[in-house]
Design a protein around this nucleic acid. Structure first.
Lengths: 328, 328
DNA sequence: AATCATTAGACAACCGATTGCATAAATAAA
DNA sequence: TTTATTTATGCAATCGGTTGTCTAATGATT
């Protein structure tokens, strides 16, 4: 591969001049510029990124960490619109995107990405944050995709307003005449679920909360629902942590001979195309994960290019009323 | 950040010795080794990856290109198990994974990844291959995720046996007593669809093929199906290019008052958890995209670490019989 | 015409690793 | 004891860019 020195030789100038021309850091005679471009073309020159990174101390890459032990893409918010949005913005900025899954770690690669200077910034899920990582991150450009625990609140983060989402769901169900509202939570440990359950409990006010948890699979959601609706005083509405869970609950209701929405109502987080397909169609809390990713990326680049924005962004979610919560 | 020279100074040795100790390329006195490790620890030393890449001419990264203009993660095979599997293997090998979406390209970044030496190998979809890329790839380690066009057949690739999948579907439907089998194709231009349609046509033998295409959305699949089943001589079975399409067709059937499987049978590609949830449960052609990704990654590393394997791998798919193709 | 300012580009150090070669010390062989 | 061999480590070049500083040439100022 041709180097900058080869180009310089052919153009009859010094490599420093070539470098400055490439990076637009100098005024040169039109004639010189043309000779350089001609040489670059002739040699099909492309700057070596490692050399460039070494010289200017940047990697021109951002890292995105995900934490998924389970290959089921449906249940993983990162692997949908967020990731696309982040990739798009990185590309616009001329950055590469390095993807790493911390769940199947052989070393702690987030720390490696920072310490070996492989990335100029990071987008991470709340689940990977711990004191030792915090220690390393310090002022390193970083955005958390989801609200971290309170003691890590000085980090930049972007999140859906999950608390508000749950509250909307509860209020909506109340208004529709449901009174014994349960929460079917699909994944105990994510920050999303935690906040949703929190909002649910707050909105219930003095009533007794009913929270059930599943391992995230449709089957398990169905089983959980089955065991719940057997009792006489079963809930007359479920808020489901995601679409898959809702499908499981719906199926359980059908098999138990209960009508949704008349006997039991459902509101579900996520708003996949499939939620319009079910019978009844699912009332959903729509979270725009594409904007989530976009905001995270923009925050990150603010930090990289300018300074730590020290910002928290909470995105509103909207309730889309469909059939599953509308008694006839 | 501490450099190798800082470590060397503190350990009282030359940086070359530190380098060789780190890379295990030399026998040193136990005493020297200990001094070096102590210094590394003291300074919290981590080698700079750019310098390392520059010096040894490798990037320790592989690139994965995807070609998705549409954010709908459901319809995109890359973003599910394949990507996970690839990431896992890359991590095991100590490589980083650089993700790029060629569909929203501001430059042609696959070529950049190669020419600027940002990656040591590439996994690409068939859609991005063209003569100019071929020209650059030459003997560059590369694996295509999906079978490319015949004239690019010298590339390494991994694919599902889509032709066989369709054939299985047709034969299965015949055996179940269906005779007018249509193919509902969701995305015209992917190599997957092409081979599936091909297999479908071959298995039909002399019968007239009926191929309908959609834009990939559930809604459009439903509309297409509606327009088809109005005619008196409508198909009595559909092979659907993916689960989403099948859901659309199923919905159209229900609304038209046609019973599935008794009036119209369905076999669908993909085997998402949801296919067990529908009523009737979907007979599916299960393709293991996790193994697809794994094989692709393994092939790529063979090329990177050893030599061009010049290999094509075709993975069998299996038909999972459920209710949607079983007349009662 | 003499002086100063500006401009275009060259020189060389530097980024932080790796590695071929050289050398000193230690050990073995004669 | 001298020479040959092995072992442990140092020296310095190199990978391919970037950038601070210097110089020569050109132009402006008085």
């Amino acid at each position: 591969m041709a180097t900058i020195h080869d180009v310089a030789k052919i153009a009859g100038v010094n490599s420093s001049t070539v470098s400055r021309v490439i990076n637009g850091k100098i005024k040169v005679l039109e004639e010189t510029r043309e000779k350089i471009y001609a040489a670059m073309k002739q040699l099909d020159y492309h700057p070596n990124s490692a050399a460039r990174n070494l010289a200017n101390g940047r990697s021109n890459a951002i890292g995105i960490a995900v934490d998924v032990s389970n290959e089921d893409a449906f249940s993983n918010i990162f692997f949908n619109n967020s990731l696309f949005a982040i990739e798009r913005i990185a590309q616009e900025k001329g950055y590469n995107l390095i993807l790493t899954n911390v769940a199947m770690q052989t070393g702690n690669s987030i720390e490696k990405l920072i310490l070996e200077q492989k990335v100029d910034g990071l987008i991470i899920p709340p689940s990977v944050i711990d004191p030792s990582l915090i220690n390393i991150i310090d002022e390193f450009p970083c955005v958390v995709l989801g609200q971290p625990k309170k003691n890590y609140n000085s980090l930049n983060w972007v999140d859906i307003d999950n608390v508000q989402g749950s509250k909307m769901a509860v209020k909506h169900l109340y208004k529709q005449g449901y009174s014994r509202i349960a929460y079917m939570c699909s994944k105990k440990y994510t920050s999303f679920s935690k906040h949703r359950v929190k909002g649910y409990k707050q909105a219930l006010e003095n009533l007794q909360p009913l929270v059930y948890t599943t391992d995230g699979t449709l089957i398990h959601a169905k089983q959980q629902a089955e065991s719940v609706i057997l009792s006489k005083e079963h809930p007359d509405a479920f808020i489901c942590n995601d679409n898959i869970t809702a499908f499981g609950v719906l199926k359980a209701l059908k098999e138990a001979g209960l009508n949704c929405p008349n006997d039991v109502g459902i509101v579900a987080f996520d708003n996949y195309p499939l939620s319009e397909f079910t019978e009844p169609q699912l009332t959903s809390i729509d979270i725009d994960t594409s904007i989530l990713g976009q905001q995270a990326a923009e925050l990150l680049f603010k930090h990289i290019e300018y300074q730590n924005p020290n910002q928290h962004i909470i995105l509103e979610s909207t309730l889309i009323e469909r059939e599953s919560s509308k008694r006839q």
